[in-house]
């Protein structure tokens, strides 16, 4: 077995800000190291490539102990938007791009972007609902074919 990683396929299953960013950072970081990378969006992760939703990805303020906030408080109207705004500002200061720009950049690095067919069918979506950078809607079997010979990371 090789002691270097040559290829990663990262599955994005969550549609929250904290669910999407780690996968994007890992995919982009892989390409920066010369590692081949694929992103496979499934379930709520599809929001991150959905034309109308990509610019509205929010932090989960309920059911997220990491927020260190009373659950009832986190459920107040506007709380998620506020927390998202604060976090986005912090990230902008660190020069971390917004999700939309980040995904466009990742596509430019030559990484593959795919949507999961089962989820697309379940949410009654079509390829037109996704940003142009998405190459294809693929089945789980096709995902494994593309992931062959590399590491698979589920987020």
């Amino acid at each position: 077995m090789s002691d270097t990683i040559e290829k990663v396929s990262i599955i994005v299953s969550k549609g929250s800000l904290e669910g999407v960013y780690p996968a994007l950072i890992m995919a982009n970081g892989a390409r920066a190291e010369g590692i081949e990378a694929n992103l496979f969006f499934t379930f709520f992760g599809l929001d991150a490539i959905h034309r109308k939703r990509i610019d509205h990805i929010k932090v989960a303020t309920v059911g997220n102990p990491g927020m260190h906030m009373a659950t009832m408080l986190g459920g107040l109207p506007g709380m998620s938007a506020l927390a998202t705004h604060l976090m986005e500002r912090k990230m902008a200061n660190l020069d971390i791009p917004p999700i939309h720009e980040f995904i466009e950049m990742i596509a430019d690095t030559g990484a593959g972007l795919y949507a999961c067919k089962a989820s697309v069918d379940m949410f009654e979506l079509t390829k037109d609902d996704f940003i142009d950078e998405v190459q294809e809607i693929i089945t789980v079997g096709e995902f494994y074919e593309r992931a062959a010979g590399g590491e698979i990371i589920f987020t």
Binding site: N28, D95, M105, T109
Partner: peptide, 9 residues
Amino acid sequence: TGPTVRVLG
């Protein structure tokens, strides 16, 4: 320090 890919781009 050298720039990142994003800064380069």
